[in-house]
Amino acid sequence: MNLAKSRRKKESWDDIIFDLICNVLVLIVVIAIAYPIYFVLIASISDPKYVNFGDPLLYPKGFTLDGYREVFKNREIWIGYANTIYYTVFGTLIALVCTMLGGYALSRRDLPGRGIIMIFFTFTMYFGGGMIPTYYVVKNLGLLNTRTCIIIMGAVSVYNMIVVRSFMQSNIPEELREAALIDGCGNGYFFTKIVLPLSKAIIAVIVLYDAVGMWNSYFSAMIYLQDKNMHPLQLILRRLLITTQAMASDTTIDADAAAEMLDLVQNIKYSIIVVATAPILCVYPFIQKYFVKGVMIGSIKG
């Protein structure tokens, strides 16, 4: 409280102008982003005929809940929801463990062979054998058509590992570890008792990356899961949207069915986004609190 007060007193014209510019900039960005998002919302409850003219500008036009009705009467959606939550929770958990452990190990400058291991990982970001050989690996491991497969396939992201590594390199001071070492503190103890508490922000980022990645992924499921009862939400929605669109432009299908599908696509296009996104959006506020300034080094050093 005291600090805040003294800060306010000291505020100079420079800072006031700076604050003003910051707020104006943010306001512009927020409007530029919020409006299209708002458009999605009102489009999802408007008659598609008007939506395609960009007509509902500020409020829905031709109000209808058909889109949502269409989405929710689909029983598969609920199964998909359950599956997605399952994959997201466990997938994120495993991925987080792998990424944090790996990222920390690689951040240690005193780890012999660290450069080679990094290249070993980075190489896979660029070169791969393609889908077919990967499919046969999965098959030979007996993972085809299992839920485990989906969870495991997202376990290691080299990109995330690099992010964690560089974060720890710049945020966990070398001196801290040396001091701990002198106190006779081992690697395991140091990692769990000091590194992890100091890395809340990056853990939050990785959880977000992994959870959102898992939430949005459908490709593995499309290839490796045959059983429809295991399909995640995104695959089901994608099937509703994209493949229905493709079918509607299939010359071999009869006009009745095509018209039906065309209508369906139009109706659900925007409501699907809302339905698929709302739950994962709720994760963000929980993550956000770890991004607050000064929760880290400052609190420990003293």
Partner: peptide, 20 residues
């Protein structure tokens, strides 16, 4: 019956021709 998702048709044909 093996049902292939229409979005994965091209990929799955490849997989099948490659061995399955």
């Amino acid at each position: 019956i093996i049902e292939i998702d229409s979005g994965a048709q091209a990929e799955m044909v490849g997989v099948m021709l490659a061995g399955d």
